[in-house]
């Protein structure tokens, strides 16, 4: 009976794993089949023409990278700050739980609400209009809970003995953070950044209001009224509004490029995460 249960459990777990793998393979395979044929160097380096039916995605790719880089730069410092404050300076478990709860709630806020908030604050209150900086900051706010939670979990997982030993040597709290906590938890920040950026790269709703246009933008030169083109918005408009067959090919090619961007993040982040883990645990 126990053996039967063990086999059934193994089958269930393996099936769940295979299902997840098959979902990813199906999405990636379909995108590659429909779009990869049109992706070449020209597609990546040429600006789009003819309402997206011709040319490439040069400025859409650039705009997406600008938005993602800004989001990362905006989200990492507060994620570190909140994670360290929660894990080191908040000593009462109840207070820690409350911060975690807030982060989980913020993580679940629909992206359209972030978009409306951004429109009210950056677009109307600050008068930036459509701005790459507003989009980057808003995406940064959106991924902040993901980053912070991943980082905070790693901080919580640091064995207490390290903190006690460092405190026993007379290190100040800031020194313990620098010498013990950060080296052991940066891997969590990288994981969180990967998850967050993958989400940010594909978000359309927040940037739709305050950062992205479909055409007419190149490299931003200022902040106010300085929008960018972005891959998700490009895909959204092509999928919604274009009836030309050429545009459909470009749509799938742009989607494959977006998937490629996310995969490149993973390929860069994974070795970095492994290296940080190795350094943190084995020196």
């Amino acid at each position: 009976m126990r053996r039967l249960f063990d086999r059934a459990f193994t089958l269930l777990v393996v099936s769940a794993g295979l299902l997840a793998l098959m979902l990813f393979v199906a999405i990636a395979g379909y995108l590659a089949w429909r779009g990869l044929g049109a992706v070449d160097l020209d597609f990546l380096t040429q600006p789009s023409r003819g309402a997206g039916a011709e040319g490439g995605v040069r400025y859409q790719l650039l705009g997406t990278l600008i938005l993602i880089a800004t989001a990362l730069a905006a989200a990492v410092p507060p994620a570190l700050g909140i994670g360290i404050y929660r894990g080191v300076y908040l000593t009462r478990p109840q207070a820690r739980r409350r911060v975690s709860l807030l982060l989980f709630v913020a993580n679940g806020v629909p992206s359209i609400l972030y978009g409306i908030f951004g429109l009210a604050v950056f677009g109307q209150l600050l008068g930036w209009g459509k701005s790459w900086l507003a989009g980057g900051l808003l995406l940064g706010m959106m991924i902040l809970p993901t980053l912070t939670l991943a980082f905070a979990e790693r901080v919580d997982a640091i064995p207490k003995k390290y903190l006690e030993a460092a405190a026993g040597l007379g290190l100040r709290r800031a020194q313990i953070v620098r010498a013990v906590i950060l080296p052991q938890s940066l891997g969590g920040l990288v994981s969180g950044a990967l998850l967050g950026l993958a989400r940010a790269a594909g978000e359309t709703a927040p940037i739709l209001f305050i950062a992205a246009v479909f055409s007419g933008a190149t490299v931003p030169h200022g902040i106010v009224e300085s929008p960018v083109l972005a891959l998700p918005y490009h895909i959204f408009v092509l999928a919604q509004d274009s009836f030309q067959p050429e545009a459909e090919t470009h749509l799938w090619a742009a989607a494959a490029v977006l998937l490629g961007v996310v995969l490149v993040f993973a390929l860069v982040a994974l070795p970095l995460r492994i290296r940080l883990h190795e350094e943190a645990h084995h020196g």
Binding site: E164, A165, G168
Partner: peptide, 28 residues
């Protein structure tokens, strides 16, 4: 913190920080 530096502590289980032997000796 200054007090703890003057009154050192050795624990039941040795606590080794990730890093080299030299890093550990001069850690504090």
């Amino acid at each position: 913190d200054a007090l703890r530096a003057r009154i050192g502590m050795i624990f039941q289980q040795p606590v080794i920080f990730p890093g080299s032997i030299l890093d550990n000796v001069v850690f504090g």
